[in-house]
Design a protein around this nucleic acid. Structure first.
Lengths: 332, 332
DNA sequence: ATGAAAGCGCTAACAT
DNA sequence: ATGTTAGCGCTTTCAT
């Protein structure tokens, strides 16, 4: 492997000049730049990442913690990951993947200077990683919103607003009894940030609008979806409108609603909270609120890289939910 | 951040002694080791990854290229990724994630000494990354089997044997006309390694056993599955046995088979090629051949790390497929 | 069993 | 506009 010294020699300049040509941190004359670039190309030179990190305290790597827990839809998770990787590459950064949900991993990559910045996904209300993140010297961004985000930057869809939006939409359509068919029990049990927030917004607006709004967890299996729908109709037989926040169960919930005579091939009295691609892939036209995973992942990178030069105050960014009507009978 | 020098000072030894305590590359007296370990703990010392990489030419990072292409089931992909990350951490390595399907990314991380080794997923028969990989100085393992693997190590399920196994199983059960409902057209069009191999094995055994075996691509949507089943029955109306190699379409294929009277709630004349978890999540009991993604990912790590010390000959490892019968009517 | 010292390849003052 | 030089923090000979 050629070193910067080899390039310098070949171009008839000093190593620092090569370094500056690469970084653009000082002006270089046209001819010199040409010769250096030529030498780099001729030798196929690539700076040694470790040497660079040692000298500059910059790795150009972002750590991404993606816990793969029970009940999460990996295809949705991967949308966030894709957004992170794509945006990171656009900013000349690579991504180190952490999947184990341990605080040790965070400390290892941070204290070991393996990464310049850290993005954490699948945040819980009372996440044990939060205090650890506060102690790191690298900038950090959470995708999600813990109970106490003090001192930490966060970005996410405004899931609470999404809950309100869905409840409001169903109420507007004239429903007096509605139900949230939510994530799997495991997701609820650990108080996953987004799940809690959806329920909060949903319940608040249901109360405010004077509609009865039950909440039912839902396993991702066909059978789980059937049980959830049946449980709702057992508890609140007058339920006419549904809000589904569960990508994997969604088709089966729709199927069961059809079986119970609450939906038809023409449409269902349902608002879904899921990636648009999931909504449009259903057998019936479906009104939905998008979860823009790629966008959020990209914003997370922007935020965390902004924190790289110059301390900046923690900031929470919640993207406004957008409801798109897609025909379907949403009136009772 | 404390350095190795700080630790040495605190323990009253030289930096090299600290280094040797950490690496275990030479014997250290009991008391010295104790003092050093104490100092490390007291100071919360972590070696600087870049400095270490510079001095030792080892990064303890594995590059993992996971192209997220159209038609692949991300949840299956993530099983492989999980296997890689888990096994890598077990061997004290981290994973750098590359999702863009460019050869440039490989060269960047390899030539820049960001990684010790590289694992590549979603290999095509005539993959443009293959020649690039041959030129890298890092050991490489492909998950999948390109047309010409000369000089490269590969690991995968033996998909060709899986194709043979499925065809043989259906033939044994008495089917005379059978059909492979395969991956989406996009996957087939780019000659994804596993897809081609399944078809090869399937067709070979169908011929050998004298059964008619058609092959039909299948979109992942409910409608796509319906069309695929209908197309099969149009081309070969006497078809009684099916081999489904498409996780996402699987439930819809089963549904359509039931609609067409070829399957019942008790079972279907189907062999599925998919992760066992996918097979058992279906509404009917389903005979299947497992795709052990986590295992394969783990083996890939073992192989690639084995290549780290001492050149070793390229090796191709194909895991034997295992068919598990789960009731269901597989007889015609 | 331990220490001293020479790099590893790069960046960023500090020169001129 | 360019060159010189002193590290960055670690590993690993070479000594003893």
């Amino acid at each position: 492997m050629p070193t910067i010294e080899d390039v310098a020699k070949a171009a008839g300049v000093s190593a620092s000049t090569v370094s500056y040509v690469l970084s653009g941190k000082r002006s270089i004359s046209g001819p010199t730049r040409k010769r250096v670039e030529q030498a780099i190309a001729d030798l196929g030179y690539r700076p040694h990442a470790g040497a660079r990190a040692l000298a500059s305290s910059r790795t150009n790597v972002i750590g991404l913690m993606v816990p793969l827990r029970a009940g999460v839809d990996v295809s949705v998770v991967m949308q966030f990951v894709t957004g992170v990787v794509t945006r990171a590459r656009g900013a000349d950064h690579d991504v180190l993947l952490l999947t184990q949900d341990d605080t040790g991993g965070l400390e290892r990559v941070a204290a070991g200077s393996m990464v310049d910045a850290i993005i954490v996904m699948d945040v819980e209300a009372d996440d044990p990683r939060v205090p650890v993140l506060r102690g790191l010297r690298q900038p950090t961004v959470l995708i999600g919103l813990p109970h106490d985000p003090a001192g930490l930057s966060c970005v996410d869809l405004d899931f609470e607003a999404a809950g309100r939006l869905a409840a409001g939409h169903l109420a507007d359509a004239g429903h007096r009894e509605v139900a949230l068919v939510g994530p799997p029990p495991a997701v609820l049990a650990r108080h996953t940030s987004y799940a809690d927030r959806v329920i909060r917004g949903w319940s608040a607006t249901c109360s405010a609008r004077g509609v009865a709004g039950v909440v039912e967890a839902c396993e991702t299996t066909p059978d789980g979806a059937r049980r959830a729908v049946d449980a709702v109709l057992e508890r609140a037989p007058g339920t006419t409108g549904f809000f589904v926040h569960n990508e994997q169960a969604l088709p089966h919930v729709l199927g069961r609603l059809a079986e119970r005579g609450l939906a038809s091939a023409a449409g269902a009295p349902v608002v879904a909270l899921c990636p648009t691609a999931v909504a449009t892939a259903q057998a019936v036209p479906l009104t939905s609120i998008d979860i823009p995973g790629e966008v959020i992942g990209g914003v997370a990178v922007d935020m965390v890289l902004a924190g790289l030069d110059g301390e900046r105050p923690a900031e929470t960014r919640l993207l406004a939910p957008v409801l798109v009507e897609r025909g379907g009978a949403t009136t009772p």
